[in-house]
């Protein structure tokens, strides 16, 4: 069901990838790190998160070259516990070929730390080839976020482009920048 005022019916999206990490920080600090460019550039391969933090607000992930990698929308905004956003990469034909993607961050207190869970959910069943890109990237992003908040230093992770995902997308006729 779509809740009043909510443009996206969350129940239609099936979780496909779920990652959990414990971080020694406050929920507020984790929320800030997830929603601000100043932090995200450090742990998210230089990508800047620009979020208008209200349901229906814009959620943009800007690539280091300044282009809009993701031009999404805030679906659920309950600081500092839960944030759901549409996560559709801005490549020509991508949404038509794959359907839409939702990302949800849940932040729960766990003793002196917090438990952060990232869920990537999809409107349509997708192949492991398509899902491999997120499965390669998210553990590195979340580990780097943890390191940044706990030590002040992100992890310097050099990662090759997600070749398996890119070739699967190319085969589906999705345009690449």
């Amino acid at each position: 069901m779509t809740e009043p005022g909510r443009a996206v019916d969350i129940s239609r999206f099936k979780p496909e990838t779920v990652y959990t990490i414990y971080i020694a920080a406050t929920p507020e600090k984790v929320w800030q790190a997830l929603t601000s460019a100043e932090f995200s550039r450090q742990y998210f391969f230089g990508f800047a998160v620009e979020a208008d933090l209200r349901a229906g607000g814009a959620f943009i992930v800007r690539a280091p070259d300044g282009s809009e990698h993701i031009n999404g929308e805030v679906v659920v905004c309950e600081p500092p516990q839960r944030l759901t956003i549409t996560w559709d990469v801005n490549w020509p034909g991508l949404v038509a070929a794959l359907g839409r993607t939702l990302v949800t961050y849940e932040i729960e207190p766990a003793g002196d730390a917090v438990r952060l869970t990232m869920t990537e959910a999809h409107e349509r069943p997708l192949s492991d080839d398509i899902l491999s890109g997120g499965r390669q990237g998210w553990p590195a992003i979340l580990s780097s976020l943890k390191s940044l908040l706990e030590t002040g230093q992100p992890l310097a992770i050099k990662m090759a482009p997600p070749a398996r995902m890119l070739s699967a997308m190319k085969a589906l006729g999705i345009g690449m920048p």
Binding site: P15, V18, T119
Partner: peptide, 27 residues
């Protein structure tokens, strides 16, 4: 051990492999 995470989807409880702790061991 945080190697498996569960999420509800409708009436189903789904189990997911969480590789984050193994990634951290690697790092």
């Amino acid at each position: 051990a945080n190697l498996v995470t569960t999420r509800r989807h409708g009436r189903e409880k789904l189990h997911f492999l969480n590789p984050v702790p193994i990634h951290q061991i690697g790092e």
